[in-house]
């Protein structure tokens, strides 16, 4: 099980941390966002609900915007635009 972070297009990145529990998802998300430029969009896939709470708070405090959010019992796919 590997963490996958890749550029999927112009200003578009994806990070897949499914299968990981706290604190991996939020720490990888932070590192991924640090690698990106303002305006870039990260598509984040994770399946650890508690990490979602931390990622939401992280977005709020850094000004990054959660522009799309899909949650289901198989995990979540969120799109975050870096401020």
């Amino acid at each position: 099980m590997a963490v996958k972070f890749e550029q999927t297009g112009d200003g578009a990145y994806s990070l897949d941390v499914r299968g990981y529990s706290c604190p991996h998802p939020q720490m990888y998300t932070k590192k991924a966002l640090e690698k990106m430029a303002a305006g870039d969009v990260l598509t984040l896939q994770f399946d650890n609900p508690s990490s979602g709470e931390s990622i939401l708070a992280m977005c709020e405090s850094s000004g990054n915007e959660l522009i799309d959010r899909a949650d289901g019992s198989d995990g979540s796919t969120w799109k975050i635009q870096k401020a």
Binding site: P23, Q26, K30, S50, S54, A57, M58, S61
Partner: peptide, 20 residues
């Protein structure tokens, strides 16, 4: 509440989040 004291301490230092 996803009430987790590990995250209370850890997320402060790891991601700067005081929520927990």
């Amino acid at each position: 509440g996803r009430f987790c004291m590990a995250s209370a301490v850890r997320d402060l230092f790891a991601v700067g989040v005081p929520r927990m």
